[in-house]
């Protein structure tokens, strides 16, 4: 029995009963992109393009390091990208180019406005 088995047998989100620190009662108002991301998740589920359980599975599949280091909605959007690639709805190149375009828009129009 090797120690790596536990990485396979126990999903990174399966934390019930594990040792943990005192609860810090943090909360934050969602960033606009986080709210849009949540709305996107709901809309994808309504259409069954990505159902809610597929989203959970996709977040788990990010693996322990990303699950530990990315924030809640960061995990969602990366999981969506991966699932959309797997379903051949989007292609990696397509998303990369669109992200460059979105970034360029901002650089070209920052602060000045429409």
């Amino acid at each position: 029995m090797t120690s790596t088995e536990n990485l396979v047998k126990r999903l990174p989100n399966d934390i019930g009963g594990l040792p943990a620190e005192p609860i810090q009662r943090v909360e934050h108002e969602l960033e606009p992109w986080e709210k849009r991301c949540h709305a996107l998740a709901d809309v994808l589920d309504f259409h069954k393009i990505i159902n809610t359980e597929e989203k959970r599975c996709g977040v788990e599949a990010l693996g322990a390091e990303m699950v530990g280091k990315l924030s809640y909605y960061e995990r969602w959007i990366v999981a969506f990208a991966n699932i959309l690639f797997r379903k051949q709805i989007l292609a990696p190149e397509e998303l990369a180019r669109k992200m460059d375009e979105v970034r360029a828009r901002w650089n070209g129009e920052a602060v000045v406005g429409n």
């Binding site: 992109w33 393009i49 959007i77 959309l84 998303l95 669109k98």
Partner: peptide, 12 residues
């Protein structure tokens, strides 16, 4: 991640 969300949404 904000850019990623915008890009995914716009493509869809």
């Amino acid at each position: 991640y904000d850019i990623m969300e915008t890009a995914v949404r716009e493509l869809l």
